[in-house]
Nucleic acid binder design. Structure first.
Length: 913
DNA sequence: ACTAACTCGTAC
DNA sequence: GACGTACGAGTTAGTT
């Protein structure tokens, strides 16, 4: 690796002055700096074959050097306004491109550069600095070069150790003292009065440093120079201080992230076009493509190298082969207050996986792998492993660190391990909590992001085993140890990084008191599962298959030919070419045939109605009826969903295999599926759901009098909204008005636009705008709250929910109106949706806690955002129901009453009767 | 044969 | 030009 660091303002100023007398603007906005900088940047990247790039910016405003010397750089005029403006835009462009840049308040770009160089040298990574600033020469050494732009063209001058010596006659390491003596007019460094280049050079030839000079000042022969030095002593030391660079700034050193292979031009396109910078943009595009090609070509060769480098660490990872060795490790671990733990299994599905080995890391840098079986068969007796695992988890005060530890816990539960982790630290959840807007929280990507470390990927083991679908027990033990122990080791290291980060970002409370206990609870809920009456499902599916078949025939008959009804493309042809129906809206690739479109077309033609009906039933069959029976666990006979705790950006849970959070309820046919979900024999379901939790949260935050009063009255919220926006008494509200009010209430939660509301209600946009205005004039505090949130989002760059959960809004300051308003809507919605998620999560913990405390057998089985489903023996059901209501209503204190409705039934579907 | 993008529809 | 958050099925076009 070779890191290239660019001193942004040094390059930008050159561009500014170069084009000062030229007209350089687009639609009235000056662009000379942006254009010039990017142009230089591109040439630089291409001629120097730059792979890893970081751009350093001055923070602007007073710096730490002004504290030392108040006339520091005083002679320089303040940066002209059009310059600063362009720098701002430039930085946004770089961000959008995925080119990393850094700045730090009260420090200059030079200090950032010095810090990066400092880190890089520790890791033996060579650097090049691109800047015209002379101060930076002091950083030059055998692995650090300074590249200075020359003249008008794209030429650079490369300054290494030798070049500095010939040019200034001193060692690069002496440049700081050289400038302290000779001064630097361009930076207003005073130096020593009367000492210039020549004397400075002579002095530093004779003496090693400034300190050396003053300690041995009597050795200076020339009286005049000695006097000048004595007279200017203070000035010399001041200059020395001013020229000195700070190399210990608190900035991230993550060179892997600075790779240009992560360029993403698509995000930047709008911004570039906004400033008319099209030619440079297309050059970036070609650059991106070439990087992508290179990446692909590299994969096969580089992976081998990475694997090998990782294998060099083998001394730290211990393969455990005997009981004696394992006992020793357990002994040593049980005295720790925490350790990292990871399982190796034969399946991604925790409910089917069987344990093949496990690894432990205790933080000393050492880690071990305990194989239950390997290519040569069993290594340990299962009975002994069982005991060992129980010994590991016996102490309830030990924190078990894991990456996606819910998986490991479920495997342990299925093994019948009697002691399970009680205190946990899940590094995957921590990574998500710290930045919920990413999409990949795998241990591999976390290691790269937070530790700049490339792990052995599971995929890499294919080469070692020699086939694609292998069982982990087929991996030779030494390599299995490398892979497995590394995961535990990395997990521990991530813990070390995340622990202080959680404190710093004020996420400690939500992490330790909400998310971590929840991880344990979710393990239990998933393990518990739900019964599914497959007979009913299969019956419904086959009935539906038959019905769908007759519908198909009917549709073919109507169209005069057969086609694939499931293909939107083919349907488009029928509707818009053959039947000449009007196009309602377009998609990326053609004309839309979605539900709204078909409903409109149904007024012109009989076909769309049939398609609508067909689609609904076909959806039910393919997505639910044909899938659910296959997900029954062969041993438990139940459906075990997996809750994803680290997916949503708002803090909600999600659910997969199957997704039990989108089982139909609206249509009669769909609802039938819910009847097939049943509790165990002699047990019942208790369902409890919040009424309008999101609007309650909005009332709580906005303190809108009308809205709060509505919830205190306990009346139907949509009817009340209708009454206030249409200025009617409650009794006079028509169903039509209530429908409109309901749409507006939803709209508020999502940050509605008139356009969308008009679409939703099939009214003109003008009419929709009137409704919105009517709403906000009645609920003025809601509007004010929305405004406050947007301001908060702009100043912080993120928003927080009621429990302090963070949602970053990296694009909130975008100049692109669409991007910015999207972020503003997200800001509002996240506070509402995310706070609701916080509340129900807290309720779940409270419920689980009390159930255990009271010795009740009931347990939670499902969460659907604002609804909880519990299972209980019949005779405890009423107690359980009260418990659910109480805990849910009082999970988090709000200034507005939060109501819960609950019922008991023999199936999920029956709860809504 | 496998993948990724797209469209569509289900839930809250 | 899309009011928020998800998951997943099926089709189609592109790559191996």
């Amino acid at each position: 690796m070779h890191i290239h660091i660019i001193d942004a303002l040094s390059i930008a100023f050159r561009a500014y002055y170069a084009h000062m007398n030229h007209e350089f603007s687009f639609q009235g906005k000056p662009t000379s700096v942006i254009f010039g900088f990017l142009n230089t940047l591109l040439t630089y990247i291409q001629t120097c074959n730059v792979q890893h790039l970081i751009i350093a910016f001055d923070s602007g405003g007073k710096t730490i050097r002004h504290d030392i010397y108040d006339s520091y750089k005083q002679h320089r005029d303040a940066a002209p306004e059009d310059f600063s403006e362009q720098i701002h835009t430039l930085r946004r462009m770089l961000d959008a491109l995925g080119i990393h840049s850094l700045s730090l308040a009260r420090y200059e770009a030079d200090d950032i550069i010095a810090t990066i160089v400092h880190h890089a040298m520790k890791e033996n990574i060579p650097c090049s600095i691109f800047s015209s600033d002379k101060d930076l020469t002091q950083l030059i050494n055998s692995s650090v070069k300074l590249l200075r732009p020359l003249g008008k063209g794209a030429d650079f001058e490369v300054l290494g150790v030798n070049e500095v010596k010939t040019k200034w006659g001193v060692e690069a390491s002496q440049m700081q003292d050289y400038l302290a003596l000779a001064g630097d007019a361009s930076d207003n460094i005073p130096g020593v009065r009367g000492i210039g280049k020549v004397s400075a050079q002579k002095l530093l030839h004779q003496f090693a440093s400034l300190k050396d000079i003053y300690q041995n000042i009597e050795k200076i022969q020339s009286n005049s120079i000695r006097n000048k030095l004595l007279q200017g002593k203070d000035s010399a030391w001041l200059s020395n201080k001013l020229v000195a660079l700070y190399n210990n700034l608190d900035i991230p050193f993550t060179p892997l992230q600075w790779s240009l292979s992560c360029l993403h031009t698509s995000k930047a396109q709008d911004l570039f076009f906004e400033y008319g910078i099209t030619r440079i943009f297309s050059t970036f595009e070609t650059l991106q493509h070439s990087f992508e090609k290179e990446k692909k070509n590299k994969v096969s060769t580089s992976k081998v190298v990475e694997t090998n480098t990782a294998l060099h660490r083998s001394d730290a990872y211990k393969l455990i082969r005997t009981q004696k060795e394992l006992d020793k490790w357990i002994q040593r671990i049980t005295n720790n207050d925490c350790f990292a733990f990871d399982t190796e299994t034969d399946s991604k599905n925790a409910m089917q996986a069987s344990l093949i080995g496990f690894s432990i890391a205790d933080g000393s840098g050492a880690a071990c792998y305990v194989p239950l079986r390997g290519p040569q068969g069993a290594v340990f007796h299962t009975k002994y492993i069982q005991q060992s695992l129980e010994a590991l988890f016996q102490n309830p005060h030990t924190t078990i660190i894991g990456h996606n530890i819910k998986y490991d816990i479920k495997v342990l539960m299925r093994m019948g391990i009697r002691y399970l982790p009680k205190k946990i630290f899940d590094t995957m959840v921590a990574a998500w909590l710290l930045d919920s807007t990413r999409h990949n929280y795998s241990i591999d990507s976390a290691a790269e992001q937070h530790l700049s470390y490339k792990t052995i990927h599971f995929h890499d083991l294919e080469k070692i085993v020699g086939k694609k679908d292998f069982n982990f027990s087929e991996v030779p033990l030494p390599q299995a140890c490398q892979y497995a122990a590394e995961d535990a080791d990395i997990t521990y290291q991530l813990y070390k990084v995340f622990q202080p980060l959680l404190v710093k970002k004020e996420l400690n409370d939500i992490f330790y008191n909400l998310e971590m206990p929840l991880t344990l609870l979710l393990s239990k809920m998933e393990y518990q599962g739900m019964n599914l009456q497959t007979g009913r499902i299969r019956m419904q599916s086959s009935d539906l298959a038959q019905y769908l078949h007759t519908m198909e025939k009917k549709i073919y008959e109507l169209c005069g030919k057969e086609f694939n009804i499931n293909s939107p493309r083919q349907l488009q042809d029928i509707l818009f070419n053959e039947r000449k129906l009007p196009v309602i809206k377009k998609t990326k690739t053609g004309y839309s045939t979605d539900i709204d479109t078909l409903r409109i077309l149904a007024t012109h033609d009989p076909l769309p109605e049939h398609i609508l009906h067909y689609r609904m039933l076909s959806k039910l069959r393919s997505t639910y009826l044909e899938v659910l029976p296959n997900l029954i666990h062969p041993i438990t006979g139940k459906i075990h969903t997996t809750f994803q705790q680290t997916v949503t950006a708002t803090g909600r849970l999600s659910s997969t295999t199957p997704n039990l959070q989108n089982i139909p309820i609206k249509s009669l046919e769909g609802k039938k599926i819910r009847y097939a979900f049943t509790p165990d024999k002699d047990w019942v379901f208790i369902g409890a759901d919040y009424s309008q939790i999101e609007l309650v949260v909005l009332a709580h935050f906005s303190q809108d009098e009308t809205l709060c009063a509505a919830f205190r009255s306990g009346q139907d919220i949509h009817t009340l909204t209708a009454a206030s926006i249409f200025s009617q008494p409650l009794e006079a509200v028509s169903t039509e008005h209530r429908r409109i009010a309901k749409a507006i209430n939803f709209g508020v939660i999502y940050g509605m636009s008139a356009f969308r509301l008009a679409n939703e209600l099939r009214i003109t946009r003008k009419k929709a705008q009137e409704f919105i205005q009517a709403y906000f004039s009645r609920y003025s505090a809601v509007q004010q709250f929305r405004q406050e949130i947007i301001e908060e989002a702009h100043t912080n760059g993120y928003v927080r929910t009621i429990k302090g959960r963070v949602r970053p809004l990296p694009q909130i300051s975008s100049n692109n109106h669409q991007v910015r308003s999207a972020q503003e809507r997200i800001a509002l919605n996240t506070i509402i949706q995310g706070s609701a998620a916080d509340i129900i999560k807290q309720a779940m913990l409270d419920i689980d806690h009390i159930l255990t405390q009271e010795g009740l057998q009931g347990c939670l089985v499902l969460q659907v955002h604002d609804e909880l489903l519990a299972e209980s023996p019949q005779n405890e059901a009423l107690k359980c129901k009260t418990l659910l209501i109480q805990s849910m209503e009082h999970a988090v204190p709000l200034s507005v009453p939060l109501r819960v409705q609950a019922s008991i039934a023999k199936s999920w579907g029956d709860l809504y009767e």
